[in-house]
Design a protein around this nucleic acid. Structure first.
Lengths: 169, 169
DNA sequence: GTTAGTGCAAACCTTTTGCAGCTCT
DNA sequence: AGAGCTGCAAAAGGTTTGCACTAAC
């Protein structure tokens, strides 16, 4: 469980561990998913209905600044929001299916090697990095071929509806 | 010059090559920089003061959907806007200095290899990908060390002002 | 008791949409 | 002529800020 380490890390910086932050930290760490602010807010509200959206943003900012979570864009496959994950595992790329939204994580020594090459080549000090890959998963490749065959003359519109999570209230 | 190829590509899709689009296409291609919508808008206005910001967004969306430009986030080092570059060169990573904003481009076969690994490993069809690296360039590493020494007890505030380009009018 | 953190409302930045009129082919 | 494109105004989506009140240490 990484969250306890995060809590220690925060305490040592004189950051107060409030009830709200405990809730958010636990959620980020336990979910195992890539949560955006809104999703995190919804989940947090189930535990504390008074918790404000702003607190979610402020906590995420804090964690990001402290290098405790990483911010992802996931190719903006579902809007322009950011996603977050605890910085625990070894470096990895995110592979996003642009059709179904499924996210795979790709580990490998290539990322590590590239990091080293960049640091050496530019004399650069890397603080954070991310690799995101968009395309079609094996499942959706077949479905897409079918879709294109069914309507061969019609370009799939860029404005095709995407299921978004509306803000309640 | 890549822009002529883009223009051909658009024409063949029945996309009209309007005065506004010509201006924008030329700017994106010639600048050699990573422009965001607002910067592109400002530059375009110098050539056509009537050109609207919305047209910039619509043109960028069109080019992106056609795979003619790539959208970058550049680690959001200066806000949440997107940046654009013509998809011409071989695949490369962007290396962004979080202090001075300088952007380096890193080429190498590692990216190509990783692409292949991901396609093989997941049976994934990659459409686009990006690797962004944030940190400190060699120049800023020294300056930062100095800054931290000068004010050793003060964490550099996350809210430290960033010079943004305000919208004229 | 202090200082940091919260909630609320309101602002902010970036991007998208609806619609009437214009223009490329 | 007619579909496609533009400009304008307005809205939307995502995030941040100001301020008075509250709670962690």
């Amino acid at each position: 469980m990484v969250v306890s380490g995060i809590k220690d890390s925060l305490k040592q910086q004189g950051v107060r561990l409030t009830r709200q932050r405990k809730i958010l930290l636990d959620l980020i760490d336990q979910s195992g998913q890539h949560l955006d602010a809104e999703r995190l807010f919804t989940l947090a509200r189930e535990k504390d209905p008074k918790l404000n959206r702003v607190t979610v943003y402020r906590t995420l900012k804090l964690l990001k600044a402290g290098g405790l979570v990483d911010e992802l864009d996931l190719m903006h496959h579902d809007g322009d929001q950011h996603y977050y994950e605890t910085r625990l595992k070894q470096e990895h790329a995110h592979v996003i299916c642009l059709r179904c939204g499924k996210i795979e994580e790709f580990f490998g020594d290539l990322l590590k090697k590239m990091r080293q090459q960049i640091e050496t080549h530019f004399g650069f000090e890397i603080v954070l990095s991310r690799t995101e890959v968009g395309g079609y998963c094996s499942h959706c490749q077949a479905l897409r071929a079918k879709e294109l065959t069914d309507a061969p003359m019609v370009e799939p519109s860029a404005t095709t509806g995407r299921a978004r999570h509306p803000r309640s209230q």
